[in-house]
């Protein structure tokens, strides 16, 4: 089912969690969704750090917007893959599935699934062009993200 930018505007805000990188390290992820271009686009800022916040494993900035034909794509910049244009693949409500190739022909796949209220399941993988035979079920970055909720004192 084709989606609109408005379908994702309820995600606006900061989401965070601890998960695993594709290479198997633990990673702390923070992603910020912001409405852009007068609210007709969804801007995303994604950071995956080591859990001590010393090394930025991967940073991505992206803008999800409609082409004149109406299809949604994401314009992006990745600290690993450089400039990107990813296609939004049709999927169910509450799913943002993006895929495409980098300029170095690495294939990327990024998916956010809202599988419960206040929870986004993030999954991503990339494989290099010379490993095109690698199965899609290979290792991937995964993380359950929750809205960054302010601390409040415990109630008695």
């Amino acid at each position: 089912m084709s989606r609109r930018v408005a379908d994702y505007l309820s995600w606006v805000g900061v989401w965070a969690g601890v998960g695993d990188t594709q290479a198997g390290q633990q990673t702390a992820i923070r992603t910020d969704f912001v409405a852009g271009l007068d609210g007709t686009s969804l801007q995303m800022h994604f950071e995956a750090w080591d859990t001590e916040f010393k090394t930025l494993y991967h940073g991505v900035r992206a803008v999800l917007a409609p082409a004149p034909s109406g299809v949604l794509r994401a314009l992006g910049y990745s600290t690993i893959h450089g400039p990107l244009i990813l296609e939004l693949t049709p999927d169910d409500e509450g799913v943002m599935a993006l895929a495409g190739d980098s300029r170095a022909n690495n294939h990327l796949s990024v998916t956010f699934v809202q599988d419960a209220p206040g929870e986004l399941l993030f999954t991503a993988f990339w494989r290099s062009a010379d490993k095109s035979a690698q199965a899609e079920d290979g290792p991937r970055m995964t993380c359950r993200l929750k809205p960054a909720t302010p601390w409040s004192p415990p109630r008695a």
């Binding site: 606006v12 805000g13 912001v34 409405a35 809205p147 960054a148 909720t149 302010p150």
Partner: peptide
């Protein structure tokens, strides 16, 4: 107008 911190 934008909300932050879960609408706080």
């Amino acid at each position: 107008f934008q909300s932050h911190f879960e609408g706080e």
